[in-house]
Design a binder for these strands. Structure first.
Lengths: 142, 142
DNA sequence: TTATTAAAAGAGAATGATTCTCCAACAAGT
DNA sequence: ACTTGTTGGAGAATCATTCTCTTTTAATAA
């Protein structure tokens, strides 16, 4: 049993979820592929080892994982949902020419923003979380 | 003919779009209601004066308006799209307990961010636009 | 003002991601 | 191993959105 799977098991148990092969596979797929995949992409990947997993099951599991805060939905302008297993604070780089979305981690920026809003504040709004959407072009090939 | 409608006509003509009652109604609805409505909400509102407008027409017009940059899609975690007619640079406040989304304009913040990224830069990424998603709770009633 | 024509709207079917239902299988504690 | 509530499978159902095809209309020119 590899280390990642044990880690995932642990996460599931901590949230009071039963450990099942399907859940392990989906979380493992999401933690391995950091490209913010769609449900479709996850299904395709998982079917290599789990040929019989039902699409409805995948959607249901993704929903549960989002609810339990083990993964996140990624906001896009498309009606196809994408998912993210990185739960540490980070922002996203959105390609304006493709569907590519990359993580952007910058604790200096986070501190800057936090300080800014502590000083400035927003009337009648209590900030819980700040996420930047940086739209632009990637200069390297994926 | 009221001022807003003339203004909207102008916008359409500038983009090379024919001026139709349906397009006027949709843009007028979006410019009047700044709540980032769904297509469904726009249809419901418009039908008061345009009982016969087809839903397909509304979707088609919204698509054209997005393409011509007269309106924007608002990113959410739902698979129901929402639209925004405010094209000036602004950010969004997302309510963590409801579907409410409010605009947040802050040119001081924009300058701060611009300066930060000019200084810092992101490897292999050319920023075109920076949008903040501020998640939290509204302390007033809508 | 009317004629012309490409663009746009209408109606309703089609699509496709996601959700739901209902039953069988299974994980986890006894 | 046994029991039970939870979870997965299969496929139908849903519903926002898109597509197709036809009719209407806005904008231009005669």
């Amino acid at each position: 049993m590899n280390l990642l799977l044990n880690e995932i098991k642990q996460k599931l148990l901590e949230k009071g979820l039963k450990v099942t092969p399907q859940r392990l596979a989906i979380l493992q797929a999401l933690m391995t592929h950091k490209n913010h995949p769609t449900a479709e992409m996850i299904i395709e990947y998982i079917r290599y080892n789990h040929p019989n997993i039902a699409t409805g099951t995948v959607y249901k599991i993704l929903e549960v994982l989002v609810e339990k805060e083990l993964i996140r939905k990624v906001q896009t302008e498309k009606d196809i949902m994408r998912y993210d297993a990185i739960m540490d604070k980070h922002h996203h780089l959105y390609c304006s020419e493709s569907e590519r979305i990359e993580d952007y981690v910058d604790s200096e920026l986070d501190e800057l923003l936090e300080a800014y809003f502590i000083k400035k504040g927003i009337p009648d709004f209590k900030i819980e979380d700040i996420r930047l959407h940086l739209n632009g072009k990637f200069l390297n090939l994926e």
